[in-house]
Design a protein around this nucleic acid. Structure first.
Lengths: 209, 209
DNA sequence: GACCTTCTCACCTACGTGTTAAGC
DNA sequence: TCGCTTAACACGTAGGTGAGAAGG
């Protein structure tokens, strides 16, 4: 939408910063012909796949914070019906604590541009809590990266110098998987779900016979 | 020794910084009537007990790095003989990479003084490697804490503002435990060694009978 | 009833222990 | 032989999965 696009353009990218999402093949798998889902629980659940980026163009000697924000997409809530997602009324209010400041923040530009930055520690929840991202179930979210430069002269000591939306990282927050195709992909690619590979294969065999 | 004491005094403690070691009862257990030992391996081994400190007196809005250095004690190497440690010739050269910069560095004074700072991620090794503390086996070490303030005006951007030695944290680096009393204490207090509690108890019973 | 949430569970990954026997 | 180091191992801790039944 227009409002989303304007978000990335009002930030002067004065340092020529670039941020590239990694593991694109994996991300395409979870978004081609399917709307990805992420389970949220009271105690917090990790995301899969994991956002992993390469950052370039920071001043090596200056200090930055890197954060990931989860923005609500659109103004509706959704339901899964007859094999697809459809609007189901107006969205709940976007919870305020929807930004994860990377645990290595703040740090030198040199640190952030050396290798990859991953967000594997993020936990998403349907309850408010410090240390977790609070989301509404059956709502759509989009991850966005925000880089701030530490600046003692600024009012709050930090100045946003870069933002980027990752449309390919969009997902539906759910308390249990709705689309069985999503479950299949999670079991296939997430090592922690290895115990269900055989289970699901056996069931599929029963169906086939 | 005189040289060790002078190390802490040439740093002007201009910010009235205090650093207090926690879990003193545990540390006393590992140093009263016994010389503590820490196993070092090629792939790196964690320390037990873990150094955990409370820091006070930092400027909340300025930025600091907190590090732990492992200094060689004395100029000898040692051997365990007839139930005690004794000198066994001249020490090997102190490896250079003997400082662990805490993984949350750099960070605001406010962060460091809020709660405790623990060094549970430190790994010690007898091989040179990034990310690990390189030590010589059968040598004695002493942990020391070093706090540096990030200062854009300084030549390398950091200025040491505090140092402190922890004599109670001294230990002998070994590739396998020499003193069985140390092994007993490790098995008794380290949760990860719980599998050996019964084993050792059973063996002791055999001896008693 | 229909829809969504919560809880417990078996089954994984990942890795921190001292033990022991073999190696040098 | 002796002293020290290495590697494989059984047995823990810690925590990340979807499944499935129960709850609201």
């Amino acid at each position: 939408s227009t409002s989303n696009n304007s978000m990335t353009s009002y930030i002067p990218n004065c340092e020529n910063i670039r941020v590239d999402l990694q593991d694109m093949e994996m991300w395409r798998t979870f978004t081609t012909g399917v709307m990805n889902e992420m389970i949220i629980t009271k105690t917090g659940r990790k995301l899969f796949p994991v956002m992993r980026v390469r950052i370039r163009g920071l001043d090596p000697t200056r200090m930055y914070s890197v954060a990931m924000e989860f923005g609500q997409v659109g103004t509706n809530r959704y339901k899964y019906n007859e094999g697809g997602w459809q609007s189901a009324g107006k969205a709940e209010v976007q919870p305020l604590t929807s930004t994860y400041v990377h645990h290595k923040s703040p740090n030198y530009g040199k640190f952030w541009t050396n290798g990859y930055v991953d967000f594997s520690k993020i936990k998403v929840s349907n309850k408010q809590s410090e240390d977790m991202i609070w989301m509404n179930s059956m709502h759509m979210y989009e991850p966005r990266i925000i880089i701030s430069r530490i600046d003692p002269l600024a009012a709050d000591g930090e100045v946003i110098v870069f933002q980027k939306r990752f449309e390919i990282g969009r997902f539906m927050a759910v308390t249990s998987y709705q689309n069985d195709d999503v479950t299949k992909l999670k079991v296939k690619y997430n090592p922690f779900a290895k115990g269900f590979v055989e289970t699901r294969a056996a069931k599929q065999k029963q169906i086939d016979e």
